[in-house]
Simulated assay, not measured.
Amino acid sequence: MARMSFKRLLRHRLWDEADARRALPADALARLGQRVAASEARHTGEIRVCVEAGLPLSYLWRDAPARERAVTMFAKLRVWDTEHNNGVLLYLLLAEHRIEIVADRALARCVPAGHWQQLVDAMGEAFRAGRFEQGLADAIAAVDALLAAHFPRDAGAAAPRPNALPDEPVVIG
């Protein structure tokens, strides 16, 4: 069984929700939620943003990677529960400066893995410069373009499609 390192444990325990709120204050989260809502009016996909200060102790104890937590949050936030299997989770783990993008199967089949990595790299560059809101806004725009290209909203629909998931980013301390 893997053992957590003291250094990793300390790093994750030192980050808390206040750190996440400093990186993305309430007004920034509201603007990001509005971007998600505007995006979802153009396609049938769902976009969720999750910012987590540090991993739960159970993940640290198992020395689990950030990707495992992102996949778990993909399920917990019900991003997988979209009609066309085209949800996307943008996940940030502040304690490790990790960015994970989890795309549901239908969209993952349309987009090469290298494209997701380019998006992660661009987000990382913005975050290193302290531009968390801009990095996420750019990522939402990029995911929006992919979803609109592969899963456009039916322009002839009589009523707008119901919003299956909340648009506001989730912040976990």
Rank of each mutant, 00 (worst) to 15 (best):
L55K: 14
V71W: 13
E40K: 11
E83Q: 11
L77A: 12
S58P: 00
R128S: 09
G33H: 10
I99N: 03
A103S: 14
M73W: 14
R131N: 12
W116H: 07
G124T: 04
E46W: 02
I47F: 11
G87M: 11
L60Y: 11
A26W: 06
G87I: 10
A53Q: 03
A66G: 03
N85I: 01
A64F: 03
R22C: 02
R131M: 07
G33C: 09
A64I: 04
L29H: 05
L77G: 02
A126F: 07
N86D: 14
R48P: 01
S58L: 08
P112T: 10
R109N: 07
F132V: 05
D81G: 00
V120S: 02
V79H: 09
L93E: 09
D104F: 03
D104W: 05
R42G: 09
A75Y: 13
R128Y: 04
R67V: 07
R98Q: 13
E125N: 02
E133W: 05
D121V: 08
H115Q: 15
R31M: 04
W80N: 15
L92T: 08
G54H: 11
F127K: 12
C50V: 15
V49Q: 05
A66E: 03
C110P: 00
E52R: 08
C50T: 10
A38G: 05
E133K: 04
G124S: 12
L90P: 04
L77F: 12
G87F: 10
A37H: 12
Y59M: 08
A30P: 00
R98P: 00
A108Y: 02
V120I: 15
V49N: 06
L55C: 01
E133P: 01
R98F: 02
G45S: 06
Y59R: 13
V49P: 01
Y59A: 13
A66Y: 02
R69P: 00
L57T: 04
P65I: 09
H43F: 11
E125I: 06
G124E: 06
